[in-house]
């Protein structure tokens, strides 16, 4: 896929930085702002009652923007949050050093999870006002829940005693070693700390436990990917006859697994195919075989299992 833009745009790259952030006027430690990951972590245990967060943004633009070719140049930061339907455009002002600075304000009532911030440059091009001539390659994420400014990249795993009084919702599974909850916001893999020996095995740092540990981890991960895939399939919306990629973890799961489910289809085509199967109620049979194959690959099960088997044999021989 390649985009065609019917008018001239800026050649160089524009970069957006978060200079500082304040919660109700109190500056946030810079350790909560990662320019490498482009994440601002707004959550602080001692202050979850803040009202507004101010993010001071600076954009750097290439020299060519100063040339006469560009008229009515304006720079802005676009802050969006899908869940609250917020799109806030903050104009940035040009500074003496030709960078652009502005302050975006997040009101807590208007946000719930993650806001994305993108930088854009507009100009009047061929008599059309306000045309986008550049946008930042990467977006910043302002996260209301994060304590450290890193992007969440793994599925959450939690140890719980499935039979304990606090975990009523896990009682149905109290004999199981693990359970997978594919909820809307964030999926969770629950590991049963009441399952004898499981925690000891998985947390063990001993070399001799490595092979079993990896084999068990592979089993859990395989179950997890298969369960999440099936949940994700049912969240695909069809708009104007075209299946739409779901958002959040569901998109990630589909994007990771579809190339293995349908290796000869582009991700978009694979999504269409999946929808078609779902519509025809063909979720069983061949599709499940493919899903299991993709889950096995995600969980790298072939490798961990072969090592496990080889280890078993070696132990046998030594006896």
């Amino acid at each position: 896929m390649k985009t065609l833009i019917p008018y001239p745009t800026l050649d160089g790259e524009i970069v957006l930085e978060v200079k500082e952030a304040r919660l109700d006027g109190k500056p946030l430690s810079l350790t909560l702002i990662s320019s490498m990951e482009q994440v601002v972590a707004l959550h602080q245990v001692e202050r979850n009652d803040w009202e507004r967060a101010r993010i001071v943004l600076r954009m750097r633009t290439p020299q060519e923007l100063m040339s006469d070719e560009w008229v009515d140049v304006a720079c802005a930061a676009v802050l969006t949050e899908k869940k609250t339907n917020v799109r806030l455009v903050t104009p940035l002002k040009r500074q003496s050093d030709n960078s652009w600075i502005g302050v975006a304000e997040l009101h807590r009532d208007w946000h719930v999870g993650q806001a994305e911030v993108e930088g854009i440059v507009t100009a009047t091009v061929a008599d059309v006002q306000g045309r986008v001539i550049a946008r930042t390659r990467r977006r910043w994420t302002v996260d209301l829940h994060l304590r450290t400014p890193t992007r969440k990249r793994t599925i959450r795993t939690v140890w719980k005693d499935f039979s304990s009084e606090e975990n009523v919702y896990l009682h149905p599974y109290k004999g199981d070693p693990w359970a997978i909850e594919a909820a809307d916001d964030e999926p969770v893999v629950y590991l049963n700390s009441g399952f004898e020996g499981l925690q000891f095995l998985l947390d063990s740092a001993s070399r001799s436990d490595r092979a079993v540990q990896n084999a068990v981890a592979g089993q859990i991960a395989g179950d997890c990917w298969a369960a999440l895939f099936n949940t994700a399939v049912y969240s695909i919306d069809v708009e104007d006859g075209e299946p739409q990629w779901p958002v959040g973890w569901k998109e990630s799961v589909l994007r990771r697994m579809l190339p293995d489910v349908y290796p000869d289809r582009s991700p978009d085509d694979a999504l269409v195919e999946l929808c078609e199967r779902r519509r025809q109620g063909e979720s069983g049979g061949e599709l499940q075989t493919r899903v299991l194959h993709a889950a096995t690959k995600q969980a790298r099960m072939s490798r961990s299992l072969s090592v496990f088997i080889r280890t078993l044999r070696t132990v046998e021989e030594e006896k």
């Binding site: 793994t154 599925i155 795993t157 893999v189 540990q213 991960a221 990630s252 799961v253």
Partner: peptide, 15 residues
Amino acid sequence: EDGPPALRDLLSLDP
């Protein structure tokens, strides 16, 4: 809260 390291690597959501 990332759970066992052996498992963490297998649950990456990176594209």
